[in-house]
Design a protein around this nucleic acid. Sequence first.
DNA 1: CAATTATTTCTTGCATACAAGCGAAATGAT
DNA 2: ATCATTTCGCTTGTATGCAAGAAATAATTG
Lengths: 233, 233
Amino acid sequence: MTESSEPASHHQPHVIENRIVYAALSGYIAPGERLGEKELSEIFKVSRTLVREAMIRLQARGIVEVMPRRGWFVIEPTVEEARNTINARRALEVGMLATADHVTPEKIAILREHVRNEQRALEEDDRAQRSYLLGHFHVCLAETIGNPVLGSILQDLTTRTVLIAALYQSTHDAHESCDEHSQIIDALEAGEPMEAVRLMDMHLKHVEKALNYRDVASRMESLKSVLQKGPSL
Amino acid sequence: MTESSEPASHHQPHVIENRIVYAALSGYIAPGERLGEKELSEIFKVSRTLVREAMIRLQARGIVEVMPRRGWFVIEPTVEEARNTINARRALEVGMLATADHVTPEKIAILREHVRNEQRALEEDDRAQRSYLLGHFHVCLAETIGNPVLGSILQDLTTRTVLIAALYQSTHDAHESCDEHSQIIDALEAGEPMEAVRLMDMHLKHVEKALNYRDVASRMESLKSVLQKGPSL
DNA sequence: CAATTATTTCTTGCATACAAGCGAAATGAT
DNA sequence: ATCATTTCGCTTGTATGCAAGAAATAATTG
């Protein structure tokens, strides 16, 4: 964890918020996981008020949701929501690449460096870092060839995508993802934005194809069958 | 105000949030305007807690900002932030049009209806409604040919754009905007998405060109000169 | 024993009380 | 009169207390 992405603000709510996003991106917290206000207030040693503030922000960002008087939960997107999120990313990232002007060598260098970090995480089999970096590549790209506004939008969308991948047990190979990232940079470096667009589109198609949209339903089915088949005690 | 866009949730914080967004889109509240917690709590007859919750959400959406212990204020984007916001819109809307699949006649009808409302607001010289509808067209487009995720992102970006236009005293003619909206629909109906992309790109260029980026600086200058020229009393 | 009902527990929802800090007005010094 | 300093008011920041409600547990009843 050489580089903590703690952006600016040293106030507690933002710290809590960023920690949770980071944890989601790294796979430390799963979709559906409950995030109790009391629990978090003890962890961060602050009152529930500040925890609540962080949760409200995360809710606005579409990363957690609240069930009245039941608690806060990490989102569990439906199949439709999952598709919508990925299609939103497609529109955004395609448009971003298509409208970007010339990419300077310095920017290419930043992106290359990022992919190198991805590769190292792959070699070292650091799964948390791997998950984080593979998601964060898109944020990095948006901030580099786009601007901070695009970056923050993409941060939310990629976080949700990572959660979706966890929920639908994505089988997308990390090495492939990394390669695809690399190829996108190649295209940018070669001054062929339309090729970058094509590659990004394919990349997102691969991400979506790797999802087992059937899984959530089948999870219920298997639970049901287990309960039905069980001994009568 | 035939159609209030109160989405779902009947809880107070969302009501406050939506009212403020609507007021911003309609030009009822201007950039830099102060939104006191106490003031709002009296207007909505709730405690500061709920007002605060709404403000935190609006902050997360980039519509208000807080100055510590001074208060909440409607954003006053800098020139750079303004550019970033519009460029983010460009990426998003261009990508959205480029990746959209065939637009059904029903969807075209919805969009046409919207433009018709714009025209009526123009004829009746209803400035609030005009401002609201011209901004909301893009949200409507995103929801129609895209999905709710795209829609909500674009809602925030267009709200900010309206505030930017107010701050930098946009001279963009409302009739032109309306015409451009209409042409974009034409292109979509004709099954020429790339033409729609081109038109949208131009539309956003017009929006940006119409901004007097010098105004904020010159405002200070004029203030200064007034103070300097004034009689010594 | 099964099914229903009552109770208890644990959660968030909301209001309120007080602390902390910025800014403007009042005060004092030069 | 001008500038520095201090006081004071009004704002948000944070914690806490209590109410409302949902789910789990215990008690009751057929």
